[in-house]
Every structure is written in structure tokens, then in C-alpha cells.
């Protein structure tokens, strides 16, 4: 495939002095790849992707995103965050701003884009997620699925190279999960590099290049979905799959 856009080399992270949350993580993601990370709660999957845009700091190892190494350097962090967009489980839309204002905020204040151009970009992204008619509503007036699609559009306004999804559908009613997954599948089809932490195995089967299983801070297994679901190699993976695919 293409060049590596995310590189984790022997990355270790601790919370406090005792909790060793990421242990010797080695990961290489090529541009345009779609990765799904799954595992039990507390396994470190959210921590891993939050290390990618420096929402969490790692103590050991190297992380290189789009050619920039992540460190304490403020300029480096800013550069990385321009290339990485994130979608949260709790949407985290700004409730006191309209949908359109939520989307134009960052391009205007960070990207130094004039308002008219920012609104144009915003409307384009809203159309992309098929929610353009809600542009002047407030987030709390929308359903959960609609809010999450707005959150995806907001992240896309800065034209990132990488999109991170931290359990994007876990807080949604079952009826709304489909509309969000459809947007994510479309995004994948357009060549975006995506890292998703999710329990939606259907999505993994449809779109992922690789599925990664994490447990207790380590990558236990990573393989293409066909191999992962039908011929899991590790006992732990088999155990986990039987639990989540059982019901």
C-alpha cells in the first residue's frame, strides 16, 4: 500500500505509578487504511487512539504521525492535531452554538479562514453527512444519531488526513446506529485513514483492512477481518469473540 502515516514503536504508557496501561505497542498504519480496534473494557484501546492526537501522553517509545514525532513540543502537537480529526462517544458538540457555528469555529479561529469560506466548507461537509437542513438548529434539538453525524462533519471541516473514532455508536439508540455507520462506511470508501474503537463487528467486516484485538494493554492479535473472525489464533481472542458474537 502507501507510506506509513501512523507509527507506534515500543510505546508504553502508565497512569500514575502503578497502572501500566499500554505495554510495548508496535503498530504501523498506512495511509488509506481502516483499522478497527476491539477488546474488553480497560484494555487500553481508547488510551491508544487518544495518544495519537496527544489527548494522552506516552512515557516510553516513539509515536510518529504523518512525519511528525509526538513530544512535549507544542508546535509539533499543533501540527499533528491539524492532520487528525476525532469523533467522541459523547459527541461533545458545543451546546451553546448552532450546528453551523460548531463547524465554522475551528476553521475560523485555528485555520484563519474567513467566515464566508468557512461556512461554505461547513455546508459541504454537512451535505456529505446528509444533514445540511439542520444547519441552524442547536445540537440539543437533534437526535443522537444526527448529533454524531454533525460531530463527524465538524472533524472533517479541517480536512484531516486521519480520522479517529472512539466508540462513536456506543451512546446511541439502536435505531440510530445505522445512519452513523453508513456515513463512516462512505468516508472509508473515499479513502480516509480511519482508526475506530468499536463493538460494531458488522462494520469491521464491511470496511476494515485490519482488526486489532487488545487486552491488558497489549495487542494480542491483528489480522484482516476474514481471518480474525473465522480463524482467530489466540485463545483470548476466541474467548472474547464467543462472548460478543454470542448474543
Amino acid at each position: 500500500m502507501s507510506a506509513a502515516i501512523i507509527q507506534f514503536e515500543k510505546v508504553n504508557k502508565w497512569y500514575g505509578d502503578d497502572f501500566h496501561v499500554l505495554r510495548d505497542i508496535d503498530l504501523v498504519v498506512a495511509a488509506g487504511e481502516r483499522i478497527v480496534i476491539c477488546g474488553p473494557s480497560g484494555s487500553g484501546k481508547s488510551t491508544l487512539i487518544r495518544c495519537i492526537n496527544r489527548l494522552e501522553e506516552h512515557q516510553e517509545g516513539r509515536i510518529v504521525i504523518a512525519g511528525t514525532e509526538l513530544s512535549d513540543d507544542v508546535k509539533a502537537i499543533e501540527r499533528v492535531r491539524r492532520e487528525v480529526g476525532m469523533v467522541f462517544q459523547q459527541f461533545n458538540l458545543f451546546p451553546h452554538l448552532t450546528v453551523l457555528e460548531n463547524l465554522t469555529l475551528a476553521p475560523m479561529w485555528v485555520g484563519k479562514t474567513p467566515k464566508a469560506k468557512a461556512e461554505e466548507i461547513a455546508m459541504h461537509q454537512l451535505e456529505r453527512v446528509r444533514i445540511a437542513e439542520q444547519a441552524n438548529k442547536y445540537p440539543l434539538q437533534l437526535s443522537g444519531g444526527q448529533q454524531q453525524r454533525v460531530a463527524i462533519a465538524r472533524a472533517l471541516c479541517l480536512t484531516p488526513k486521519i480520522m479517529l473514532f472512539d466508540e462513536p455508536t456506543s451512546a446511541l439508540d439502536p435505531e440510530m446506529i445505522t445512519e452513523v455507520l453508513e456515513v463512516m462506511i462512505e468516508l472509508a470508501g473515499q479513502g480516509m485513514t480511519m482508526i475506530c474503537v468499536t463493538h460494531e463487528m458488522g462494520f469491521a467486516k464491511a470496511v476494515a483492512n485490519r482488526v486489532i484485538f487488545m487486552d491488558q494493554g497489549q495487542i494480542v492479535e491483528e489480522s484482516p477481518p476474514e481471518e480474525f473472525f473465522n480463524r482467530p489464533k489466540s485463545e483470548r481472542t476466541k474467548d472474547f469473540l464467543s462472548k460478543i458474537l454470542g448474543h
Binding site: 502508565w14 502503578d18 512515557q59 516510553e60
Partner: peptide
């Protein structure tokens, strides 16, 4: 699990 390493380098731009 093992304990965390000591603090490393210093960056003027941190």
C-alpha cells in the same frame, strides 16, 4: 507490568 521510567529530556518549546 513494570514501573514507569524516569522523566526524560527537556524541550524549550514544551
Amino acid at each position: 507490568a513494570r514501573p514507569p521510567p524516569r522523566r526524560r529530556g527537556w524541550s524549550w518549546r514544551s
